[in-house]
Design a binder for these strands. Structure first.
Length: 276
DNA sequence: AGCTCTTCCTGAAAGC
DNA sequence: TGCTTTCAGGAAGAGC
């Protein structure tokens, strides 16, 4: 499932392959996979890729055409991918959008999304700014420690839902939330208000480390994540708790990894991860 | 504010 | 073996 590291890998490959390329065609297979505005044909002809950004778990391709700026924003949701033609596609009927380019290293980008949690939007600068402001809180890789403290201050809820709340911290999903909490030694149900300053700082650092390491590994390929070129992410090998119910705790404490099934599955060590 | 539940959706895996 | 059921979960919205 694409989370921040996977979206970053996707954005990075598209950036490397398509900056300066011209969009020549855009085919939309399913009208309900794109938001209003996307299907208007006039916008894309001769539009040039200027930049590719990641916002939370979304990828925004910035186009310019006669000074006008437009963004194609792809929400990856659970199963959404952006793929180059060289990537093997297992269920090709779920390619919903194709963007064709000339003058780049790749000739096409395909939006593949079997479960269809996620949409494509076409936004101008103002639209993107509003989209980002409404949906995404701070980026965990660029937020300062001071701002991170401020975000957690006076919160009454549990830590894991907050970590996964996109309007607070953008980009962390269930896999990385579980991995981060294990490494920090905090139980998923710990109350945010119980965190000491040093623990909060540790949480901040570990969050950055885990996400950066995962990016360096090309993301985590659990089930169906592939980078645009079809390669798998290697960070799954570094997972310590996610999907490891019943396994011995990697800290060698002798306990077995448990799973809380209540909302999103939480994998944790009952000894190493305390409620404080 | 924050929690739980529901809806969306398909394919893989588990169950019978 | 083959059919049916369950599960996975990101985001939004309802209701409490």
């Amino acid at each position: 499932m694409p989370e921040l590291p996977e979206a970053e890998v996707v954005a990075g490959q598209i950036r490397a392959a398509l900056i300066g390329a011209r969009l020549t065609d855009c085919w939309v297979g399913r009208k309900d996979i794109v938001r209003e505005g996307f299907t208007s044909r006039s916008w894309y002809h001769e539009a040039v890729v200027q930049q590719v950004q990641r916002h939370g778990k979304s990828v925004a391709i910035r186009f310019v055409k006669e000074q006008a700026v437009r963004y194609v924003v792809a929400e990856l949701g659970m199963t959404g991918l952006l793929l180059f033609p060289s990537a093997q596609i297992r269920h090709p009927q779920h390619v919903h959008v194709r963007m064709t380019f000339s003058g780049g290293r790749e000739s096409e980008v395909r939006y593949w999304n079997p479960r269809r949690f996620g949409r494509l939007s076409l936004l101008d600068q103002e639209g993107l700014d509003q989209y980002v402001a409404r949906r995404f809180g701070c980026d965990p890789l660029t937020v300062s420690l001071e701002d991170f403290y401020r975000l957690l201050k006076n919160r009454r809820g549990r830590l894991k839902p907050l970590l996964m709340h996109q309007q607070t911290v953008a980009g962390i999903g269930n896999i990385y939330a579980n991995e981060i909490l294990f490494r920090v030694g905090l139980h998923p149900n710990v109350r945010v208000s119980r965190l000491s300053s040093p623990k909060t700082e540790r949480l901040y650092q570990v969050t950055r480390e885990v996400l950066q390491e995962a990016i360096a590994c090309g993301g985590s390929s659990v089930k169906d994540f592939f980078a645009p070129d079809g390669t798998e992410g290697r960070y799954k090998r570094h997972h310590l708790v996610y999907g490891k119910e019943g396994a011995l705790c990697p800290n060698r404490c002798g306990q077995h990894i448990r799973r809380l099934k209540s909302e999103r599955s939480s994998f944790y060590c009952p000894l190493c991860q305390r409620l404080i």
